[in-house]
Design a protein around this nucleic acid. Structure first.
Length: 129
RNA sequence: GAAGCUGGCUAGACAGUCGCCGUUCACAUUUAACUUGCCAGUUUACUGGCAUGGUUAAAUGGGGAAGCCCCCUGCGGGUUCCCUUUAGUGAAGGGAGGAAAGUCCGGGCUGCAUAGAGCAAGAUGACGGCUAACGGCCGUCCGUCGAAACCUUCAAAGGCGCAAGCCCUGGAGCAUAAGGCGCGGAAUAGGGCCACAGAGACGAGCGUAUUAAGUUACGGUGAAACGCGGUAACCUCCAUCUGCAGCAAGACCAAAUAGGCUGGCAUUUUUACGCAAGUAAAUAAGGCGUGGUUCGCGCUGCCAGCGGGUAGGUUGCUUGAGCGCACAAGUAAUUGUGCGCCUAGAUGAAUGACUGUCAGCUUUAGCAAUAAAGCCUACAAAACCCGGCUUAUCGGCCAGCUUCACUU
RNA sequence: GCGCCCGUAGCUCAUUUGGAUAGAGUAUCGGUUUCCGAAGCCGAGGGUAGUGGGUUCGAAUCCCGCCGGGCGCG
C-alpha cells in the first residue's frame, strides 16, 4: 500500500537546488503551468513551487494555487519518476479552473515520464557505444 | 409609518475520507550521557563483562508482495509477511483576520551610543481630560458642510370651490436637526508674495471737494482700497516632543574550503657565540608546474591544537498595556476590584483538497407552497508583539438619535 | 523590515522650483500639391493634469488620504 504522505524530503528547499534545476534548462509548458525538471539520484521525486507576484497580486490566490499544486503532486507522487521538479505558474487560475488544472498537471506528468524514460535509454546507449 | 444618520456584533453550519503544522500523554525501538548492583583483572582508583537494571535527552523513515476483514465502495482503513535502515505507533486537544492589508503614526522588546546643555533636522499645535505613548480617543467651544421635512418665493398642468384660496407637481432661496468634516497657535519679531482690472496693491502717495492746517470726507475696479489688509498647508517666530537602528534586532551551537595564531616533525649552506649540545641571523638547496634541454619564470612541506567565522541549525517565539463576566468611580474616553479562561507559531513558508445534507444568494417556471439550474461566496491570509489611523468589503442581526406625518 | 521616485492629448515629453493662457513633436482627420500615392505646406479636433478632499481670491503646481507603476538598501 503506497503512502500519500508528503514529507519534507519531497520538497526542494535550498536556493542551490532551485538554481540547479533552472540551469538544467529542461522545460515543459502548458497554458497555465511550466514544469522545469532534472533527474535526481533519489528514490522519489521532489517538488518546488514558484508562484510569482506577477501572476497574481493577492496573497490569497497565490496561496490557493500553491496548495492545489501541492495536493496534486501529493496524490500523484508515486506515478512520477525520480526527478527534481519545479512547477511555475504562468497564468492565474482559481477554483473554477480546478478540473482544467488537474488535466494539465496529469498531461505534464505523462510527458515528463516519457521524456525521462527516453533520456534513460539514450544514456544507456551512449554507455554501450 | 416615511426619510436621513450613528454605533455594536457576526463573517455560513454539521458530518465523512485523505493530507499539512505545533502541543501534551502512553507504550515500544535505537543512540548517547549519567548512575546502581554483581563478577573478573588489578589495585585503592581505573578497565572489561553482565543485568534485556534505573534516570534523562534526542530521533523514530523508505520500498515491495499476496490473501483476508471492515465500511459511507474510495486515489479508503485495518491485519499479515519480506527487503533495507540507527529508526513508531496510538490517543487527546488546537490551528488566520476584522481588517491579518497599506506601512501612515505611537509604544514594548533587543543591540549600539550616551556627563550636562545647546545647534541642526523632523514632527505636533483651540481649551480640558484619558493613556505606556501617539498625529489616537472622549467632552466642550469655534468654523464649515449638511433633508424629499419646515419656512419664504416663483412657475405651470390638473382637481375642489361662486370667489378668496386649498391640494398636488417642479425650480430657486433662507436658516437649520441628527450627523459629517476641519495640520483650529502667532500677521506691531522680521523677510517674501498678492496676476488681470484699477489713478493707486501694501510704502504711502494721487484726484475731487473742504479746512487756519495732510484737517476732514469721498474715490468706476477688485478677493482685498486709503487701514498699521490677506497669506504662516511661503520662509519664519513661539510652545511641546524626538539618541540611532531594527527579530534579516540580539544570543548560542557549528561543517567544508581558504587564511590567522601556537606547538611538534622534516630541511641546504654560511656566519657569530660555545668544548659540546644548541641558540640567533641570513641564505639557498630540494620538490612541483611551464619548457625539447641548460638558463629562466611562478609556487612552497607534513601533523596536531586553538580562536574568529561562512553555509546550516537552535533560540528569540508567543502569557500579553491579554480575553470574558460582574460590581464600583466618571457626562465620556478610561480606571479600579473580584472571579474565570489559555487562544496559530510556519520559515521555498502549515491552516488544504474532495464529498454529502441543511441554510444563504442569483436566475428561470409558478398566484402561491415549491421545483430546477448555478454559486459554494464579499474584502481578503499571520511572519517579534501590542495601541491607533487609513483603505477594501457580500450579506445578516441588534441598539440608538433627528425631522416629518398619522392614531390614541 | 526600511528608504525613495514618478502618473499631463492615442504615444513621447515641456509647463511644477517661483501659483493666474496647458504647450510642443508624433499619430488622427480635412484641405493643398500629384495621373495616384509618399514626403512637404496650411488648418482642425483631441485634456476637468491618476483619483478624492482641503488651503487660497485663484491649484497641473502647496498640504493630506487613496489608486497604479518603478527603483534602491539589508
Amino acid at each position: 500500500m503506497p503512502s500519500y504522505r508528503l514529507l519534507k524530503e519531497a520538497k526542494l528547499i535550498k536556493t542551490d537546488e532551485f538554481s540547479s534545476v533552472f540551469n538544467f534548462r529542461k522545460r515543459i509548458a502548458t497554458e497555465y503551468l511550466a514544469l522545469h525538471y532534472q533527474a535526481n539520484q533519489l528514490q522519489r521525486p521532489r517538488l518546488g513551487l514558484v508562484v510569482g507576484k506577477k501572476t497574481a497580486k493577492l496573497a490569497v490566490s497565490r496561496n490557493y494555487m500553491r496548495r492545489v499544486l501541492r495536493e496534486l503532486f501529493r496524490l500523484q507522487q508515486h506515478e512520477i519518476s525520480a526527478a527534481d521538479i519545479i512547477l511555475r505558474v504562468q497564468k492565474k487560475f482559481d477554483k473554477r479552473d480546478f478540473q482544467l488544472i488537474k488535466l494539465e498537471f496529469n498531461a505534464l506528468v505523462v510527458k515528463l515520464n516519457q521524456r525521462l524514460a527516453r533520456a534513460e535509454i539514450n544514456h544507456d546507449k551512449g554507455h554501450e557505444a
